[in-house]
Amino acid sequence: MLGGALAAGAPARTAGGEPAVVFRNFAVSGALTRDVEELQTPAALSYGADIVSVLVGVNDTLRCAFDIQDVAVRLGRLCGQLAGQGALLLTACLPDPGTMLGLPAPLARPLARRQRAVNAVVHALAERHDTLHLHMSDAAWVADRSLWSADRLHPGERGHRMIALRFHTMLADRGLPVGPPPGLESDQSPPGRTAALLWLATAGTGWVVRRCHDLLPELLRLAGDEIRHRARGTSERLDQHAEAALSAALAALAALSPGAPFAGTGE
């Protein structure tokens, strides 16, 4: 799942007394890291989950008020709280939306910088909490169109099956009982160009309109910066600025005590 998502599993018993698993999906389409921390995490903590998947960050990169330090601190708090309760976390680094959507370079580069920063934060948290981590930003994931839905931002059926299989393998490697592996055979064919155009003409239109009031003015400003710096031969300054912001975010993340509340950016 690409976007704000938090799902949890906890042990239970069948009517015959055999071990079973109860699955709860707390994810909400379009959720930001703020939503995952403030709304979804308390529900997962109350649920007392043993395994929690935390897939979040792309929606944050698609907002004009993107702040990598705020994202890092919020992710650090929620992962610390879940891990502190004994939950095993499933995390993933995610592809940047500019590449997935095939945007022109001046529009794609700022989104790529943002997603790289989010992925760096998630990598740091994966090491800190020994999560089961999936590299979904790798080129093989991005290039395989059969894994993605018509909107190119969310996995399709085969993509979800692949994600489930990869996590199943990692859980099994940890010695956890996970049952038989999920199959990769899809019930539906991967979406083609016609399906993508149909999505754009229906649901995609509403998505574009919503982003026009939020991301588009900021993205156009960022694209303008890209074009000006490229014309001057100073594009490295934009990379340096992004690296400085990421360094500050990782420093704020390192200052967090695992499982403890922290008054971070924007609080």
Rank of each mutant, 00 (worst) to 15 (best):
W207H: 14
A112H: 11
L39Q: 09
S46N: 09
I68V: 15
L153I: 13
V54M: 07
M1A: 15
P180A: 13
M170L: 15
A172V: 14
V58N: 02
P106F: 06
V21E: 03
R24C: 05
L6H: 06
W207F: 15
A231R: 09
R113H: 10
I227A: 09
A245Q: 15
L176M: 13
T234D: 06
A83F: 06
T205G: 15
L219N: 03
R145N: 06
D130W: 04
G102F: 10
A112R: 15
L101V: 10
R228K: 10
R210V: 01
N25M: 01
L171T: 07
A244C: 06
A65Q: 13
L184D: 02
M1I: 08
V58M: 13
L238W: 04
R221C: 00
L82W: 08
Q85Y: 05
R109L: 02
M136L: 15
D225A: 09
Q188L: 10
A263L: 14
D144G: 05
R237L: 10
A7F: 00
Q81I: 00
A143S: 14
A139D: 14
Q115A: 03
P11N: 10
M162Q: 02
R232V: 01
I163L: 12
R128I: 03
A8K: 09
G57L: 07
A65H: 14
Q240I: 01
L90D: 04
I163P: 00
V71C: 14
R152P: 01
V28Q: 08
R158V: 00
R161M: 03
H154V: 08
T265A: 14
L134G: 00
G156P: 00
